[in-house]
Design a protein around this nucleic acid. Structure first.
Lengths: 188, 188
DNA sequence: CGGCGTGATGTCAGGTGCTGCCATCAGACT
DNA sequence: AGTCTGATGGCAGCACCTGACATCACGCCG
């Protein structure tokens, strides 16, 4: 059990999820998380910039998925449909994530700090989406608006998915929500 | 100059704006803000829940304006147009706010913590907007989608307004951005 | 006019998040 | 075996934030 047990990040994430699930995020200290992972507080902060960040490990991969999906979309596809393909792909990935997304969402819902962090992560996704749309030739403000609208649709669909007791199809929820947005912006 | 100089909140806000403007928000401590306002750190935290909050004093009034504008909108108005009226009214109010909005925006742009706080404030606006739309009979997910879309339009228009050197008309920018969103969601 | 209640403020102690600095130690490479 | 690298530990210290208690200005009431 040397000083060098592998996968320190993974152990820290697991410990944080367990402790936050048991007694709540705010009632969990970094020292406790680190100890359960067999590490020290100092090492925790070498792996994660701050306490909140540990619960968002993996957000970068979601960003990559969004961006690469847009990049792979046919050149002729309308911006909104390219963005739609991206958030549907993200939804599918999350649905394949097992219990983690739901567990994470429950913890986030219990802490304002975590909600703030989630919002800035989503804003970062929107920003990356907008960048990729601009690379496709979409000009401002259409690129930013498309990206923000897509993320809003994603967020609302995700919230509905979390709220459901039975496991619905998240990509389908996303598609339906986007259709609802289209109807709404058309004045209906 | 008794213990009881009036308008402690206002003095704290002024001190926070000055110090954050001079040397940056992160480089400003709560003790310094309180001292410049002629108060102590403890008293600062009696007026504001945390250090970030002082820079968002007045956000509640914006929420009230949004909600009341939707409430006053004719019953027959489409949800998106009721929301549009609300964010245009908010834009007009901000434009009348003198230097403060620009000054605040510059400070917020320099701190990730403040950006997080701003995002949750905007989300809170969206939530209040959605509540008011539901009161008008708009069902889910249309209410949430309309509200989120409106706030996204508002945010993007505000960012553009801040980025301009000359003082353009913010409500007009908001209207144009909404039109752009309508075009984008229509697949153009 | 003087006591008294109320509310804003001050003071102090302490927990927690986070960082800088330096030491330590496991494994890899030579 | 010597050395280098990188992950970790230990410690000091600052800033944010909170609870508990004391203090003081002001207004009210007798």
């Amino acid at each position: 059990m040397g000083r060098w047990e592998p996968n320190a990040r993974g152990r820290l994430l697991k410990a944080a999820l367990e402790l936050s699930g048991e007694r709540g995020y705010e009632q969990t200290t970094v020292v406790e998380i680190a100890e359960r992972a067999g590490l020290t507080e100092r090492t925790f902060f070498r792996h994660f910039a701050d306490k909140r960040e540990v619960l968002f490990a993996g957000a970068d991969e979601l960003k990559d998925l969004l961006v690469s999906t847009v990049a792979k979309a046919p050149a002729g596809l309308a911006p909104i449909d390219a963005a739609a393909a991206a958030i549907e792909a993200a939804g599918a990935a999350i649905q394949d994530g097992g219990d983690l997304p739901r567990q994470r969402a429950a913890i986030v819902a219990g802490s304002r700090d975590l909600q703030e962090r989630e919002l800035i992560k989503l804003a970062s996704l929107a920003s990356a989406l907008a960048d990729e749309l601009r690379r496709r030739g979409v000009v401002e403000p259409a690129a930013s608006l498309t990206a923000e609208a897509a993320i809003a649709v994603f967020k609302i669909a995700f919230d509905r998915w979390i709220g459901e007791t039975d496991q619905q199809d998240l990509p389908r929820l996303i598609r339906e929500s986007l259709d609802a947005l289209k109807a709404v912006t058309a004045g209906r």
